[in-house]
Amino acid sequence: MSAVDPTFDLDGQPVALQPGDTILSAAARAGLDIPHLCWSEEVSGSASCRLCTVLADGRPVAACVTPAVAGQKVECRTASLATQRLRLLQMLFVEGNHFCPGCEKSGNCVLQVQAERAGMTELHFEVLNPERPVDASHPDVLFEPNRCILCQLCVRASDELDGKRVFAIGGHGIATRLLIDSPSGRLGDSALSVDDRAAHICPVGALLPKRVGFAVPIGQRRFDTEDTRG
């Protein structure tokens, strides 16, 4: 890196940026963690989870879709942003049925680990207990819509990586849900294959490959730490 490389400031750390960078992509390349759920370097941004909200020169923006600007002062670790992230996570938890003790994604779930890192101990809001029917029609992939956080990673992976357009987002407001492009609306009648990237990109326990649950011992799961009892 030469002295003239453009940088911006993230919580006091200089972050090098390249043409086309967003705040989040530049920070991720530098190994600096900005909490996020709906962003992946594999696909385009969607800015739906709002967890990556930072203050760019004092203005709240979604770091995943906001272009990085040389010389900008970006703040991520402030007390009010930490509280906002906690409330966003609690909203996602009460909006679905996130019963981690019975979910095979537990320990490998991005929503769960973000909540743990945010220090979430309780739900704060009233639970909504949605009653969306499970779709087990696909031979190799299960869809549990009550865990879906509408991050649209599967939508974008199917569009941009698999070239299949199996998924879309439909409905309005709290009734917004993941739609499946098949005559019956069921996963088993769609073009989805378990080998598709879209079948594995789900950050939570909504889209799950079948028959591989609970295979990894507690203590060795993706987000387990040495504190994790096993």
Binding site: C100, A115, E116, R117, M120, T121, D227, T228, R229
Partner: peptide, 9 residues
């Protein structure tokens, strides 16, 4: 709670 002691499962 210490970070490692917050678990949901």
């Amino acid at each position: 709670p210490a970070p490692g002691l917050i678990r949901y499962d």
